[in-house]
Nucleic acid binder design. Structure first.
Length: 920
DNA sequence: ACCTGAACGTA
DNA sequence: CGTACGTTCAGGTT
């Protein structure tokens, strides 16, 4: 069994950089890297946007760039001694001659891909890496033959392919690197991984594929037979031959199906069998990894405009580039530190330098324990050396030394600091002195990215593609990598975080965002970690009762709905509902959507009012009950062993600066409906505590609007403590405050909030069910009275167009390039975003400050009460007996003082034994 | 196995 | 044709 997937040295302190050519010649073991050229070129093509990679002459190079980058990463990580790339030809193969539809039905090759394979072959030639293609055969056969030859010679073989047929090659000596997505995530598949995924050993994979079929190759399998059924048969009869011999003993519909398609299966098996005994034009020994042809690389990479890749290539092969800036992306080797003295020596070596000590990256390795994670080792990475400390070794001196340093002010860089804290906590370890978390600094620089994974950030900001070697984050497949590979992977991640941190620092400074990172987000991460670890208590009794009630309500509504139309239908399927509502019952059509006509709640309500059809009433009742039931079911599943729910807050998801909550989402627990509030009633005070306390800001977004706009009228209203909507209503409608009717008040309320979202007259008319003209007049009257608001809103968009971004009161930016888009829809959306972001974002800034204040004050006063939840403008705390008054006072004080606005920040507080009771 | 759209809960 | 999210399901595609 080959286990080492990345180089590990235990005593490499003196050799931080190891050119591959040296690695290739020392030691007796040979490692062959075989690459499926076309499939990886395609992966690279789809992983990188073609528009970002082209030469001045217009030749697209995204596939070439991605392929080369992937190859360099592979060579660096896997340290092969031999490398070869196999390509398909366009000519017919023995497979397409037997079965003309083979690989048919594929989409046409995109235009941008043309010519890139030829360029890849040229790059390989310049790198002195042999490429092989053989007329009449596929790359897969070449690969299989090479793997067989390598294995026969006693070598380790790594096959890089995006084609699943390669799985049949896996043995103790042969691993397949199969890209999961793109080219940055290529986990190794070994026999265990194949079995885990397909339930058969690798040598039976082709049997399975023959039964199931392979859409990519246009090979249909047996209808109704998926991997599970196929694996069952194969394991029962000892392979496909056994299955075919026992055709008649397989019963059921699938058995019939199999007998009807047995010829397809035989054909599939013939076609997916890979040849392992081809005559190849290149001998195994000729694939030895040599130094690249420097001149050829220079010339070719000049033409391709590959400057970063050129540097990486020469760094990798140990050739010094002229004027090396010392920033070569070479991951330092690591040592596994096993005693306190060695750890201290390593740590001291990093702090002895003159001037300010350079930060050390801290990457925590962890394993899942139930719903929680627990640290198993810590990787410490500096620019030129790295150390790994395993936890739980029972070496107390080592543990003490590590704990001392982790807690100390020694500057540290992390990626996902909060997760590190949560993993370290169960081992009694803290983490101090963290000066950067690249998942957060990356977010502050560019808050609307989808992902802040290290590979993504690295690709975007450093232009370095690096492949995650294996199990990294939680929830990923643990392929049973040896510790060494995991450590090397963690060191690599730490190293990339270190590079990113250095890259981000000047960007943050330039934006004036240092304080957002250092004084807001990083301290907040520690507060959030504690909240997440604490969780909130759930009442089992209430949960079970509610489940039962909702199930009964759902079933009753479903039965009544079926009775109303005389047959069954999937009430959860919009498609089937459309059929029933608009075709069967012939009800009037609702608003058009992509897939037909909407069946959303508002439309159903309108239809019910119009027609009074019983089905509609029952459908709506069913929707509400099943929705709630599903929510309760999900909550039930996320109750941990301690009887509490531990959500996870994301600090880098909402582009405005808000937190988001997931697993489960505790920021969307119902509150409006009576039934919904029963869900909120399941959240109760924990044993030993006195009550829950909920504190929320009153109208924080409107107050921010008043502050930002400086509108005298709004400021006065808040200063006088008036009912804001009543006050505004009296001015807009020109009546005395006492004469503002509830209809007037709700119109004004809708408009006030709408303005903060970039509401249009059209939208307002829709919401208030008035004419557009009426809405327009309302807006005009509003702005006549509150001109500051109009001027502010207008100014925000203008300024954002000039600057390219909006800012919150703390200087949190959101970039809005679409403000200058020629696409009207995009542009107007960006305008609404520009209106909303400073308001929503400033509210987020404020409550984040409040959380830091509350946490600090609880701590300072030595109280045992604790913060549990944040819901955008609300905090929920668990109060220790006797601390209620003190907690209430400090929460009000800290939330109220979280920002210095032109209007007061009002805080409402409630207490109770459940979250619902504490609300108001 | 993965993705998208519709729907709906919150602020 | 107000903003910001997360989750679920169905239905469609690997």
């Amino acid at each position: 069994m080959m286990t080492r997937l990345a180089p590990v040295t235990e005593s490499a302190k003196t050799a931080p950089k190891t050119p591959v050519s040296a690695a290739a010649t020392h030691g007796g073991e040979s490692r062959l890297l075989v690459i499926d050229g076309h499939s990886m070129a395609f992966r690279a093509f789809y992983a990188l946007p073609p528009e970002n990679f082209s030469t001045d002459s217009g030749q697209h190079t995204n596939a070439v760039h991605g392929f080369t980058s992937m190859l360099l990463t592979m060579i660096r990580q896997q340290k092969p001694t031999h490398v070869v790339v196999a390509f398909d030809l366009d000519t017919p193969t023995f497979r397409s001659l037997e079965y003309t539809e083979y690989k048919g039905g594929r989409n046409k090759t995109p235009e941008e891909f043309y010519g890139q394979v030829d360029l890849i072959i040229k790059v390989m030639a310049a790198m002195n890496i042999p490429t092989i293609s053989v007329d009449g055969f596929e790359a897969d056969d070449i690969i299989a033959t090479l793997a067989a030859q390598g294995e026969a010679a006693g070598w380790d073989v790594l096959v890089v392919s995006g084609d699943r047929d390669a799985f049949q090659l896996i043995t103790d000596k042969v691993l397949v690197l199969y890209p999961k997505k793109g080219i940055s995530d290529i986990p190794p598949m070994d026999a265990a991984a194949v079995e885990a995924k397909y339930f058969v050993p690798p040598n039976r994979y082709s049997d399975l594929a023959a039964l199931v079929g392979e859409t990519a190759d246009n090979l249909p399998g047996v209808p109704g037979v998926g991997p599970k059924t196929a694996a069952k048969w194969i394991n029962l009869y000892g392979g496909l031959d056994g299955v075919l011999e026992n055709l008649d003993s397989i019963g059921g519909k699938v058995g019939e199906s199999l007998r009807a398609h047995v010829e397809d299966v035989r054909r599939n098996r013939r076609l997916n069998h890979l040849l392992r005994d081809m005559e190849l034009p290149v001998a195994l020994e000729d694939t030895v990894l040599r130094a690249p042809d420097r001149e050829a690389v220079e010339e070719l990479f000049d033409a391709l405009q590959f400057n970063t890749l050129r540097k990486r290539l020469f760094d990798l092969f140990g050739e010094e580039e002229a004027a090396d800036d010392g920033e070569g992306h070479e991951v330092p080797r690591h040592e596994v530190v096993t005693d306190a003295a060695a750890l201290k020596a390593w740590l001291d070596a990093g702090t002895n330098g003159s001037g300010a000590p350079a930060p050390t990256a801290v990457e925590v390795l962890s394993e899942r324990v139930g719903l929680m994670t627990e640290a198993t080792a810590v990787a410490l990475v500096r620019a030129d050396s790295a150390a790994v400390v395993e936890l739980g070794t029972a070496d107390e001196a080592l543990d003490r030394e590590l704990a001392r340093w982790l807690t100390s002010d020694a500057p540290k860089v992390a990626h996902e600091y909060k997760e590190a804290l949560k993993a370290l906590a169960p081992r009694g370890l803290a983490l101090g002195g963290v000066v950067d978390d690249t998942s957060i600094s990356g977010y502050l620089i560019q808050p609307d990215r989808r992902s802040y994974d290290l590979p993504d950030l690295s690709q975007v900001h450093l232009k370095v593609t690096f492949a995650a070697a294996g199990s990294t984050g939680a929830g990923q497949l643990d392929l049973g990598l040896e510790d060494g590979a995991k450590f090397a992977d963690a060191v690599q991640r730490g190293y990339v975080a270190l590079l990113l941190s250095g890259h981000f620092a000047p960007m943050l400074a330039e934006r004036g965002a240092d304080h957002l990172l250092g004084e807001l987000e990083l301290p907040l991460a520690a507060v959030l970690a504690r909240m997440e670890l604490t969780g909130i208590e759930i009442s089992r009794d209430r949960l079970d009762t509610l489940m039962a009630d909702l199930t009964a309500a759902m079933d009753a509504a479903q039965a009544a709905a079926f009775a109303a139309i005389g047959h069954e239908v999937n009430l959860g399927s919009p498609k089937q509902l459309q059929q029933v509502l608009f075709e069967e019952l012939g009800l009037p059509k609702t608003k058009k959507i992509k897939t037909g006509y909407t069946t959303d709640a508002a439309s159903l309500k309108a239809l019910l009012d119009k027609t009074g059809h019983e089905f509609l009433a029952q459908l709506m009742a069913h929707r509400e009950a099943s929705k709630l039931r599903q929510m309760v079911e999900t909550l039930k599943k996320s109750v941990a062993d301690d009887g509490r729910i531990h959500t996870t807050y994301a600090q880098n998801v909402a582009a405005t600066g808000r937190l988001s909550s997931n697993n489960p989402n505790l920021q969307n627990i119902p509150v409006r409906s009576e039934e919904g509030r029963r869900v909120r009633d399941m959240f109760v005070v924990g044993a030993g505590y006195e009550c829950l306390l909920a504190a929320d800001y009153s109208q924080i977004e409107m107050r921010i609007m008043a502050h930002l706009s400086g509108d005298a009228g709004l400021i006065q209203a808040y200063a006088e403590g008036e009912d804001l909507h009543r006050y505004v209503g009296s001015h807009v409608f020109g009546v005395a405050p006492g004469e503002v009717t509830s209809a007037m008040r709700s119109k004004v309320k809708a408009m006030s909030y709408g303005l903060a979202y970039g509401l249009t007259s059209f939208g307002l008319s829709k919401q208030l069910e008035i004419s557009v003209d009426e809405a327009r007049t309302l807006v005009k009257d509003y702005f006549d009275r509150f001109g500051g608001v109009r001027d502010y809103l207008r100014g925000v968009v203008e300024q954002a167009r000039i600057d390219g971004y909006t800012s919150t009161i703390e200087g949190r930016r959101r970039y809005l390039p679409d403000l200058s888009s020629t696409d009207r829809q995009l542009r107007e959306l960006a305008e609404r975003v520009a209106l909303n972001s400073p308001i929503q974002g400033s509210a987020a800034d404020i409550i984040k400050h409040a959380m830091l204040g509350v946490a600090a004050e609880l701590d300072r006063q030595g109280l045992k009460s604790r913060m549990l939840l944040q819901v955008h403008d609300e905090l929920v705390l668990e109060v220790w007996p006797g601390e209620r008054a003190a907690v209430e006072a400090l929460v009000v004080a800290q939330m109220g003082a979280a920002a210095d606005l032109l209007v007061p920040l009002e805080v409402q507080v409630g207490v109770g034994s459940s979250w619902n009771d504490a609300g108001h």
